[in-house]
């Protein structure tokens, strides 16, 4: 668990705080996403958590311990850090880059080798082909994967990820996001994730902190942000398609009608799974030219979802 208490940073020779009295906490195993325009202080927050930047005032606790009481080098070895510019060591092989922290921690060499191979596999790189290459021989997407593998190497409970998928094209980014979410299901790290892309934030975050000019504007789950944006800044950040974005986060089962008797549902021309997003239901409805889909859980039909219900829902949340 990570807690920030009234954390403030004013850089030397500046007057406006880069981060202004921010308070929040992140629960174990959650992804907390910081989102906001460039220069709003996201990177500074991350760098205060691993003490690359010291706060001007306020306190930061990890698992209840004030991080100022921990040796900063040791603290950093326990926190995985994916930096915005990737920052691979160009004179080291990929194997050496990924094994960096385990070597600092003096793991036995055999264990490091095994761990590196395992991790390259995990981030979707072919170990036997990649391990002996140098960074300049990789593509941008491959480098970012190595950056993530390096941060994961010593199996730190906490990860700081600064725009980790920023330097790749949207298609690769989407794939890296999916793969990372799948990985997170297994490893359950506590993650601080920085992005300026609201869609990435909504997709990756269990919890989102919206920032502007160093100030915390709103914090909440993606659902809360979409359904109750605190002000115009958040509304603008989310964009005009707030309703549709919400449908992407709403499971079909939460809007479905449970019919009096099953035959009605069974008459539906098409079906979707209960846990699929409502957006998918719309897609299926359009394809089948139907106003209604059946909702299934496993083989069982458990309800129906109609165009009228969806419309009502959108009106409800956008308040018009």
């Amino acid at each position: 668990m990570i807690q920030l208490e009234q954390v403030k940073k004013i850089f030397p020779q500046t007057t406006v705080p880069a981060v202004d009295e921010i308070t929040f906490s992140i629960n174990k195993g959650n992804i907390c996403v910081f989102v906001g325009p460039s220069g709003c202080g996201k990177t500074t927050i991350l760098r205060m958590i691993n003490r690359l930047v010291e706060p001007t005032s306020g306190n930061i606790y990890i698992d209840g311990e004030n991080i100022l009481h921990v040796n900063s080098d040791e603290l950093r070895r326990r926190i995985g850090y994916v930096i915005q510019q990737v920052g691979l060591l160009p004179h080291r092989t990929i194997e050496q880059n990924v094994g960096l922290v385990p070597r600092l921690l003096k793991w036995p060499e055999a264990r490091i080798k095994a761990r590196v191979m395992e991790l390259l596999e995990v981030v979707g790189l072919d170990p036997s082909e990649t391990a002996w290459k140098y960074p300049y021989q990789l593509s941008g997407g491959q480098m970012q994967r190595v950056g993530v593998a390096r941060a994961l190497a010593a199996d730190p409970p906490i990860m700081l990820m600064d725009e980790p998928f920023g330097a790749v094209d949207p298609i690769v980014r989407g794939r890296l996001q999916d793969e990372f979410l799948r990985l997170q299901q297994e490893v359950k790290k506590t993650i601080c994730f920085v992005t300026h892309d609201i869609n990435e934030a909504l997709k990756m975050g269990d919890y989102i902190v919206v920032m502007n000019k160093g100030k915390l504007v709103q914090k909440g789950t993606p659902m809360e942000l979409l359904s109750e944006p605190a002000n115009d800044f958040v509304k603008d950040l989310i964009g005009d398609d707030r309703g549709v974005k919400l449908l992407d986060l709403t499971r079909a089962e939460s809007l479905m009608m449970v019919p009096e008797s099953y035959p009605v549902a069974r008459d539906c021309p098409c079906f979707i799974d209960a846990i699929q997003p409502v957006k998918m239901a719309l897609e299926v409805m359009m394809k089948n030219d139907s106003d209604v889909v059946g909702v299934r859980r496993g083989d069982k039909v458990i309800g129906t979802l109609s165009w009228t219900e969806i419309k009502k829902h959108i009106h409800r949340i956008s308040g018009d």
Binding site: N50, L52, D73, E74, L75, R76, R77, R78, Y81, I83, Q84, Q85, V86, G87, L88, L89, P90, H91, L100, V101, L104, R150
Partner: peptide, 26 residues
């Protein structure tokens, strides 16, 4: 490259380790 030194620091390398393992070799 500053970002490489930054990465080293962020990974928990000491100043001496950064000098010998990053700055000098580079």
């Amino acid at each position: 490259d500053k970002s490489v030194i930054d990465a080293g620091r962020g990974m928990g390398m000491s100043t001496t380790q950064i000098l010998y393992q990053i700055q000098i070799p580079m």
